[in-house]
């Protein structure tokens, strides 16, 4: 296999608080290949977004990377600071935020927002940038792009705005896109369009995508592989078919069983008893043990095995147990 675009090794993010240090990301490792879409799934507070922010260097202090490495196209980037990191953002790593209504500057024309991004990173003239801005809008499917470059964000609908956001994220042709809940704030009818667009553009350009979501439907529809996060740790990582149909980790299993799409036809949705622990009170051993139906003393004491591809972070992986 070729070298991955993004490689995260044993990454931890820490936030010092009044009640001690919390670790919203705890020893997470995964790779993303060119042209691949990796889904990161988990409940809110599981550390999905925090990992994405760590990669693009936008952690809000006092949160910081405390351990581990991040490699982008064979270059280590986790220790980069200030201007060196800024040059990567937009140019090498693009980001799409959750809410298109708030992620565009309301006072600037979208054409200006596009050209300024390109002029920051690419050695092109303003005229060239303006041309490319129109092309970028056309590419994301905005009708009448040549006129719409002069519009302000409030003149677009939510779905159209998210297309603009995607155009902005892609306009300097980064090799990695981090899409943080890109469809959550959109109408259901628009969600599929945006996912399809993201998929299409990234396939064409060979862009690697980190797709952060809590929506199993989006995962099933868009991703090649999926990483399941629980309480800051990786629970399971594998090809999307395998994880969805043969989850090995009891948490993933519970998650599948509680998702309407995966458990079609069931009269009542499954519920995982209890709630994810607060990050300042993660239990010893496996973080999931208080809620796990299969937990033993071993789960309560020994650290769980590390996740590797196709292997869950569990002492007792569920083998061939299908979600019905």
């Amino acid at each position: 296999m070729a070298d991955p675009v993004l490689s995260i090794r044993n990454l931890s993010v820490e936030i010092p608080t009044r009640h001690g240090i919390v670790r919203p990301v705890d020893g997470v490792s995964y790779d993303i290949q060119a042209g691949e879409i990796l889904g990161i799934v988990g409940e809110s507070g599981a550390g999905k977004s925090m990992a994405g922010n760590a990669v693009i260097g936008l952690l809000n202090p006092p949160a910081h990377i405390s351990k581990g490495e991040i490699w982008l196209n064979g270059k280590r980037i986790d220790h980069l600071k200030g201007d060196a990191m800024r040059r990567l953002r937009g140019k090498e790593i693009g980001m799409v935020f959750q809410d298109p209504l708030t992620s565009l500057n309301p006072l600037l024309r979208i054409g200006d927002q596009l050209t300024e991004t390109m002029l920051t990173h690419l050695p092109i003239s303003r005229i060239e940038a303006e041309k490319r801005a129109v092309a970028a809008l056309e590419e994301v499917g905005i009708p009448g792009a040549a006129e719409r470059v002069n519009s302000y964000p409030h003149e677009f609908s939510g779905g159209m705005r998210q297309r603009v956001v995607i155009a902005l994220a892609l306009c300097a042709e980064p090799s990695l896109i981090i899409a943080d809940e890109p469809t959550t704030a959109l109408d259901v009818s628009v969600q599929a369009q945006i996912i399809a667009l993201l998929r299409l553009l990234c396939r064409d350009r060979g862009t690697a995508v980190m797709l952060i979501t809590h929506d199993m439907g989006v995962i099933a529809e868009a991703t090649d592989r999926v990483a399941v996060m629980y309480a800051g740790r990786l629970a399971e990582l594998g090809p999307v078919r395998d994880v969805l149909t043969h989850p090995q980790h009891p948490y993933t299993h519970g998650l599948m069983a509680s998702t309407p799409i995966a458990s079609q036809g069931k009269s009542r949705l499954h519920q995982i008893p209890g709630a994810m622990p607060r990050l300042d009170a993660v239990p010893e051993g496996c973080a999931f043990n208080p809620r796990c139906p299969h937990a033993t003393d071993k789960c309560r004491q020994a650290p769980v095995p590390r996740v590797s591809n196709g292997q869950a972070a569990c002492w007792y992986p569920l083998i061939d147990e299908k979600v019905i």
Binding site: R86, R89, M95, E116, T120, L168, A169
Partner: peptide, 17 residues
Amino acid sequence: RQDYIRFARARGLRDRA
């Protein structure tokens, strides 16, 4: 603190901009 400022940073715009 707004999203569009985060997004502007995420696009690698210079601090001055």
